[in-house]
Design a protein around this nucleic acid. Sequence first.
DNA 1: CTGTTAGCGCGTTCAG
DNA 2: CTGAACGCGCTAACAG
Lengths: 329, 329
Amino acid sequence: MTSIRDVAKHAGVAISTVSKVVNNYPGVSQETKEKVNKAIEELDFVPNAVAAALSSKQAGRIALIVSLNKVTKAIDEINMQYISGAINQAQQLGLDVITLFTSMLEDKSTDEIIRYLKAQNIAGLVIFGISKTKKKLHGIINSGAFKTVVVDAPFYNAHTSSVWIDNKQAQYDIVEKTLKYDKCDSILYIAGEKQSYVMDERLAGMEELVKEHNISMLVKYGDFSELKAREITMKHAQKRGMVVCASDLMAIGAMKALIDMDIFRPVCGFDGITLMGYVGMQMNTVKQNFARIGSEAVTECGRLLSGETGRNIKLDYELVRMRYEDIIR
Amino acid sequence: MTSIRDVAKHAGVAISTVSKVVNNYPGVSQETKEKVNKAIEELDFVPNAVAAALSSKQAGRIALIVSLNKVTKAIDEINMQYISGAINQAQQLGLDVITLFTSMLEDKSTDEIIRYLKAQNIAGLVIFGISKTKKKLHGIINSGAFKTVVVDAPFYNAHTSSVWIDNKQAQYDIVEKTLKYDKCDSILYIAGEKQSYVMDERLAGMEELVKEHNISMLVKYGDFSELKAREITMKHAQKRGMVVCASDLMAIGAMKALIDMDIFRPVCGFDGITLMGYVGMQMNTVKQNFARIGSEAVTECGRLLSGETGRNIKLDYELVRMRYEDIIR
DNA sequence: CTGTTAGCGCGTTCAG
DNA sequence: CTGAACGCGCTAACAG
């Protein structure tokens, strides 16, 4: 392990000079800069980020907390995009990030978790996939021990920000767009989980839409499960003119059911996930740039850490028109 | 942020005494120990793990490198179990761990990645899901810059260990067990990806088995995809007496196909994932304790870090007898 | 422009 | 059994 001191000695300059060169600070002559860089090359010096963090006592690291799929305990594509976007942004901003999964916090009390995070020198939190039932996460947020950014949930106050897209408007827009191509006067809406914050929003969007267009709507909860959506479709789609699903996965289930029933109904998804292309289906979708949401969340967390106050951020979304045609059985 | 110094002052002792109490070192009287603990309570002191790491200049942190599913870029249940097990074990051993996903290393050169890891003070690597095509990972391992533990792949030398179950034996055993209940003289084997190390092993197990039992075998590569397994089954299962799949997901695909074809064939999976229960199917499976593999890998990495030499570790596996019956369509 | 000095928060001798 | 003193690798004033 070669340290900054070795470099300084090798280059025949002071430690602080090396530090300045490494961090691109002003006040170093071109000449010495080159000398130092040469020494860095030769010794293959890599500054120790941990030590730097300790010394500069920068606000601290930030932790990404990710809720897992309850059934398989896996991370779906959307959460993965959140994470990627967040980590990339953190590297850009020079923030230190670690990723935590809720499954590993399960056997710890709220207090223990807070202590653990503090011990890890964590000052900021970005939480993905929180629902109304996650008491522990709520406890951590409310403790005020950390600057927190919550994705897809309505929390914002002095030390908490929320980042999401406008789910209500998105749900409204996507169905309205579908209606332009396929008129109908009754919709089967397969919602997700009741305890999900985004569901409240999306449902509100649907309610506004059916009211304005004078359409009847049957709401069923599919819990974001392909299988349940399939069953619901089997049971209720016959008498309805269109199936709207709160997630692409459920839309896939609905489509499979429709194929088996051998009837055609317009189907409308939401997320715009890769899997859709994988199974060879196409439909109306809100193409969310999930990575961007993660990225934005980290940026916002940085803002909070530097003393600014929390806020409620709604990002733009984008609508993509697709139809299902060559469906693979 | 209350530091160790605050505690020392509050308790009226020296800093080193507090340190000893915190780390449970001997040489502190019961009396002072209580005094210190009281102070810790009152000030709600949480030792800063980052500073501790720097000071004790412990070998360094270890990074978990996880390869993602190529299609959806998500983390499947198995990898998630690996990660959970690994992180839990790390906490047990007091090792500092961070999780990295290969997708975020894609745009970096091998050299850049090495520098990044070094900057993060990382000395040990645990790699999950490596395949023959992952050149960068191979480059990092071979650079010798880090003590590495590779899961499910045959690398072991002075600074590299491998941890896996005996895939060959497992594949052999599970099919042999199935054969006890359902005799057959021709097997359709749906393998995974050609570039996967575990596939070589499992295929070897199959080859040995069919040779010994004088069974004919047709091998097709399903790339661990449910869809492909479905297609392969559609095409080739009719003339075969049994379908053996190298993963549960493919087994699900095979089963769905068999149901559609309306013929019965014994199906044999491998992993024993939750999803099987989710879709309401049951079959023969090697119930791997994946979390244990992750845990073992971290332990081994710790061993390497303390100067020991690499080795090839094969963990026990366990066979579970199941059959598919009440299959949900 | 360059070097000196004092910490960041903690672990670890080694005298007392 | 206790505590002063030093150092981990680095940053950040402050002198020179």
